[in-house]
Amino acid sequence: MAQAHRTPQPRAVPSQPRAFKLVLLGSGSVGKSSLALRYVKNDFKNILPTVGCAFFTKVVDVGTASLKLEIWDTAGQEKYHSVCHLYFRGANAALLVYDITSKDSFLKAQQWLKDLEKELHPEEVLVMLVGNKTDLSEEREVTFQEGKEFAESQKLLFMETSAKLNYQVSEVFSAVAQELLQRDDREDQAPQEDAAVALNEGPARQAKCCAH
């Protein structure tokens, strides 16, 4: 069976920034690739639908530390679900992206969350819900409140963005990066026992980015 299992080594050589794997998930044409493109290259254009997956990296500075984000951009169409499973193995973080002008895409994002939880332990992966396309707010079908409430109920981070207008895009990734580093540091201090897992549960997953 094909496996795209790649576990980045978070604490490799001290001189190199720690690497984290982040996957972008969500239904078709919600703007996953656009978010990645905006964040990595600060560009917005008409891009090809992602077939299979695409890969980007970016080094992020969080305070004094820096880390390397390996961004895996996946195909949105449902048919690709099984293929995407290959990609999100070993992920440290996932962005569940939906389109605020499409209720359907919001429901799909919830479905993705279930899939993700089946595949990975909630403790292993940091999940952030992202409502994209705020530039089209007059066509909005999912309110900010709805998104926020769902995120809180599932203990996810949450933000709304616009890749087109470059609204809050880098904030999304920085928030994830920051959280990843914090978790990583906590894990460093925590004993490497099973008990450590339980310790990390809960408060750390609070939706602290809903500063809106």
């Binding site: 496996q3 290959l86 990609y87």
Partner: peptide, 19 residues
């Protein structure tokens, strides 16, 4: 850690017509 699924999916799914 480069696996064929990371690059060749698009080769096969579009018969090399992608990108």
């Amino acid at each position: 850690n480069v696996h064929s699924s990371m690059y060749a999916s698009q080769w096969f799914l579009t018969l090399f017509s992608y990108n």
